[in-house]
Amino acid sequence: MTAGRLLSVFLLGAALSACGTFPDIPPAPDSASVELDDVPFFPQSRYQCGPAALATTLNYSGVDIDDRALEQAVFLPGREGSLQAELLAASRRHGRIPYRIAGNPEALTSELAAGNPVLVMQNLGIDALPQWHYAVVVGYHSGERQWLLRSGTERRHTASHTRFLISWQKAAYWAAVTLPPGRLPASATPATVTQALADAERVMGAPTVLPGWEAAVTRWPGQAELLFGAANAQRSAGHKHAASQRFEQLLISDPEHYAGRNNYADLLLALGCPASARTVLAPAQQARGLAPALEAVIAATAGELDQYPAQPDREDCPAAPS
Rank of each mutant, 00 (worst) to 15 (best):
A191H: 08
E201H: 06
E201I: 05
A186H: 08
G222R: 13
V193Y: 10
P211I: 11
A196H: 05
Q223K: 14
T189S: 09
G182V: 03
G229W: 08
A196T: 04
A176S: 11
L227R: 01
P207K: 09
L179G: 00
A215H: 02
V203C: 02
A200R: 05
A191V: 10
W220D: 00
A224P: 15
L227N: 06
R183A: 11
E225S: 14
V203H: 00
G205L: 04
P221A: 15
G212W: 04
P211D: 05
G212H: 09
A196E: 04
S187V: 01
L179Q: 01
T192E: 15
L197T: 03
T192I: 13
V209H: 02
A200F: 08
A216N: 07
E201T: 11
A196N: 06
Q223V: 12
A224C: 15
T192L: 13
E214T: 07
A188G: 10
G212F: 09
E201Q: 14
P185Q: 03
T218F: 12
W213N: 04
E225C: 11
R219L: 07
L184R: 02
T218Q: 15
L227P: 06
P180V: 07
T178L: 12
V217Y: 06
A200H: 04
P190R: 11
W213R: 05
A196Q: 05
R183K: 14
T189K: 05
L227F: 08
D199H: 13
A206Q: 05
L184Q: 01
F228H: 09
G205P: 13
